[in-house]
Design a protein around this nucleic acid. Structure first.
Length: 376
RNA sequence: GGGGAGGUUCCCGAGUGGCCAAAGGGGACAGACUGUAAAUCUGCUGCAUCUUGCUUCGGUGGUUCGAAUCCACCCCUCCCCA
């Protein structure tokens, strides 16, 4: 359940209580698609860098190793040795990202596995069953993430279908949670708002899905090609129709600046592959701006990545050393950079929470955006 | 000492008369990445007054309208036999 502790204008400071513990919001969820954060990051590392929620993926775990296997082994928490909340994305994003490998129908989506090409069918019921087998804390509704720019007629047809899918998800989730052999009988369900970049579709969609008593509401289908201004505008017009007493999750977003702007508009949950992926390419977020540690200018730099950072990379190693590791293709470079970026994101969220508590979010946001626009 | 192979732009390596500042790798340099088919992808890598000009393919000289490519000599490297 969600408890609003404090508001500063639209920015919200909250607590979300689950069977796997309480999450302080706004929160960034660390993305481990295949039940691991890429870059050799362990669940113990995640605790050290301040991760509150881990995110895994329904489609990917269904394809490999298989959700039935994970259920047989006691669920995802036990499998990956993580006792805090896990959110599983539904596979809806793969409807978008695996565009060349799937066909969308009313009943659901037919995929060709990206691993071996075999046919996979996933509809709302299947997605819920898989997520129930995984026994994540929060399941996401099975949606269609529409590619942008989208035709109005297609976006309308798609979001209406996504609403019908959501109703089926809710029904199936209620059924699964009542079964005797379900691992997590308290599994929560978040619905997903769609509607491309069309205000009226976004609003009517949000009104529709708000009628269902869900555990949270996500905004999906953003940061997939539209401008950041369009994205912020969609948040501005859509969020007023989201239930006040339920958490709001902006899916797949984003840069530190995107997060600062979205919190200001009332978003509580975030997730994004960017900090981990960019870290794997030696691109780092720091308190002084964005850094490409591959740059020649860091060759002899004995300072840590970020002087003010308390992450395992910054506490122990220099820019020069980590740059060398990356150039030498040593796995440790990737690991240290991923730990740093995720620590940065989790720490940013902690600072955001404090700023809201201190009624200082406006100044805080302005100063942070100014520095994050810089390059080190 | 005898026989053989070869020296190409930072490195490896293709090219054996014009379409060659020279394929392809690698490295270097730089950029992208937003619910992860991403340890990936893109650009760039002789000089300049950069839609053109200049210098470059071991060295020197020559043949030719034209040479990295053909000829002569020289220098150097590697392999085999003694």
């Amino acid at each position: 359940m969600f408890k609003l502790i404090k508001k500063y204008k639209e920015a919200r400071r909250g607590e979300f209580t689950t069977v796997h513990g309480t999450v302080q919001t706004p929160v960034f969820m660390n993305v481990g698609t295949c039940a691991a954060i890429k870059g050799a990051v362990s669940s113990a590392d995640l605790k050290e860098i301040g991760c509150q929620v881990e995110l895994s993926n329904t489609y990917h775990l269904h394809v490999r190793p298989g959700d039935r296997l994970i259920k047989e082994l006691g669920g995802l928490h036990k499998f990956m040795n993580w006792d805090r909340p896990i959110l599983t994305d539904s596979g809806g994003f793969q409807v978008f990202s695996l565009a060349g490998l799937r066909r969308i129908k009313e009943e659901g989506v037919y995929f060709n596995s990206h691993i071996d090409g075999r046919k996979i069918f996933m509809g709302p019921e299947e997605s819920m069953q898989i997520q129930s087998n995984l026994a994540s804390t929060i399941a996401m509704a099975f949606d269609e993430c529409v590619a942008l720019p989208a035709e109005y007629s297609y976006a309308k047809k798609s979001h209406e279908r996504t609403v019908r899918w959501l109703e089926r998800c809710k029904t199936e989730m209620d059924r699964l949670n009542s079964l005797p052999d379900t691992i997590n009988k308290n599994q929560m369900l978040f619905g997903i708002n769609q509607g491309a970049t069309f205000e009226d579709l976004r609003i009517s969609n949000m009104k529709e899905i708000s009628k269902l008593d869900l555990d949270g509401y996500a905004i999906g289908g953003l940061a997939v090609g539209e401008t950041t201004e369009e994205m912020y505008h969609i948040l501005d017009v859509t969020l007023p129709f989201a239930p006040e007493n339920k958490p709001r999750y902006l899916m797949g977003v984003g840069t530190p600046i995107n997060i600062l702007e979205a919190v200001d508009r009332g978003i509580d949950f975030f997730d994004c592959v960017m900090p981990a992926r960019n870290a794997r390419h030696c691109n780092l977020f720091t308190s002084a701006g964005y850094m490409n540690l591959k740059n020649e200018k860091f060759e002899k730099d004995l300072r840590p990545i970020d002087e003010t950072c308390g992450c395992p990379a910054c506490k122990n190693y220099s820019r020069a050393y980590i740059r060398h590791l990356f150039k030498a293709k040593e796995m440790l470079a990737m690991r240290l950079c991923v730990l740093h970026n995720l620590y940065f994101y989790n720490n940013l969220m902690s600072d955001i929470r404090k700023a809201i508590e201190n009624d200082d979010y406006n100044n805080f946001k302005r100063e942070r955006i100014e520095t994050y626009q810089k390059r080190v």
